[in-house]
Design a protein around this nucleic acid. Structure first.
Lengths: 255, 255
DNA sequence: TCGGCATGTCCAATATATAAGACATGTGTC
DNA sequence: GACACATGTCTTATATATTGGACATGCCGA
């Protein structure tokens, strides 16, 4: 879907498709990029990109940074995103749920989903605790690194899962490599349990708790999750998990 | 800039420009729209819009609603918007300031700016008070209806201002019509004072306090504002205004 | 039952947007 | 100074995206 085609693509391409490529590249980069650099990364002609970027800047979908001529997303996109967050039923209701969860528990609460073959945070609220563990919305993360990843794949067969996940994604940030079979077992258990908890997985000091938001067909459309320090005791975790599951169930479509 | 061209435009048009038009129309509409309806509103050929919309849906920039085939912004746009909010210096720092202001005062705090010839809320935090006065991000509002509007026009001459604002925008929601000269005087005074307060302007029961965020040239690039019930006493308002001005000054570029 | 109106897909023709390259200008390195 | 490399603007051609219209289908009301 959002599989980037690398430089090789040297065919004449449609403007809209190029625009999509520009947006995806800017999301990856998370920082302003010069037009020439953008052309290089996309394997696109410079003249084309100048043309497109100028049009997008005029429409306020992109902005040029004052200092150098680098471009990034513009104000219009912010407004479009806000309109989406307010209008999309799941996103809106989840946002309210996150507000409550973060306020009541002082933990970081997030809405997560599958995007391509990665996990992304769609929305997030920081608890008021001292340790503000804050993950970036929209940054792709390997599925095996996360509790939510185990839930989001619940509807896939083991074959589909191994086909989806690139081998390098089993290597955790701390260098350990997860056995694919072990991950498949995690996915199966998460489906059984209806939740998933990881301790010190993506990072030695954090505990992730996740619960599935299901669509009308019972598949995991998204997850709600808490990110807390690992040192919280078993009872606290239990309480957080209960809240999380209740909130996720309330967001789920009726079976 | 974002001046919509109505149906008359029956020339052959570029795909990217059509895409921009689609986005702007969806922002205006704030609800999913059928493709045929979209074509009618934009004065564009149906076949073109089906082509473009299908491409945008595939790229996740748009989503089709399950029930009917209506389309609206998609998840990708949400991620782009979040990347903007996090990366753009003003937007990011303002977001943090809003967090603090809303948390400390239990009022609704907003970041506002000029977009075309209207006022828009760019970002907003609700106070925890009982009266959650919540304005929608991205909805265009006539400039004379707002305190921020008076600050945002500070760098324009009276002639520019009257040229910019359409006559109907002087008519307030309650039916009263504001004299343009009176509005010009308000703008001048707001510039003198370095802030603006309105009581029961856009709505009988709300008080708006606004302070300017200035760019390097001293022009008002945006405003911070509080929205509170009118019944707060003078002293409270004074305190809120002081906080607001301090926060706005901190966001302003060094003169 | 029929007619009117909508959606969504497909096709062929032509106006035009994409692409390639030249050009002027600026900048840092040797 | 000369060189290599970057940016941003223009111009021209040709591959193709946009467009108008036809078509199949479905829904609603008379």
């Amino acid at each position: 879907m959002t599989k980037a085609e690398a430089p090789p693509a040297s065919e004449r391409q449609s403007g809209v498709d190029r625009v999509v490529d520009i947006f995806e590249e800017l999301l990856r980069s998370r920082a302003p990029v010069r037009v020439g650099e953008l052309a290089r990364r996309l394997g696109a002609p410079r003249s084309t990109l100048y043309n497109l970027v100028n049009r997008l800047v005029a429409a306020d979908l992109l902005e040029t940074t004052d200092e150098d001529g680098a471009v990034f997303f513009g104000r219009a996109i912010q407004l479009y995103g806000a309109a989406y967050a307010q209008t999309n039923p799941l996103q809106r209701r989840a946002g309210e749920a996150l507000d409550r969860l973060a306020a009541e528990t002082d933990a970081t609460a997030q809405l997560c989903a599958l995007r391509g073959n990665k996990y992304v945070v769609l929305d997030s609220r920081n608890g008021r605790g001292l340790f503000r563990i804050t993950a970036d919305v929209g940054v792709p993360v390997p599925l095996p690194w996360t509790a939510s990843g185990r839930l989001l794949l619940g509807h896939l067969s083991p074959g589909d899962i191994t086909a989806l996940i690139p081998p390098e994604d089993y290597r955790l940030p701390d260098g350990r490599t997860l056995a694919p079979e072990s991950f498949l077992a995690d996915v199966a258990r998460a489906r059984e349990d209806g939740h998933c908890v990881t301790l010190g997985l993506s990072d030695r000091f954090t505990c992730c708790l996740a619960a599935p938001v299901r669509d009308a067909r019972g598949r995991t459309a998204a997850t709600l999750c808490f990110v807390v320090p690992v040192d919280r005791d078993e009872g606290e975790r239990r309480g957080l998990l209960d809240r999380l599951r209740a909130a996720a169930d309330a967001l789920s479509d009726p079976a």
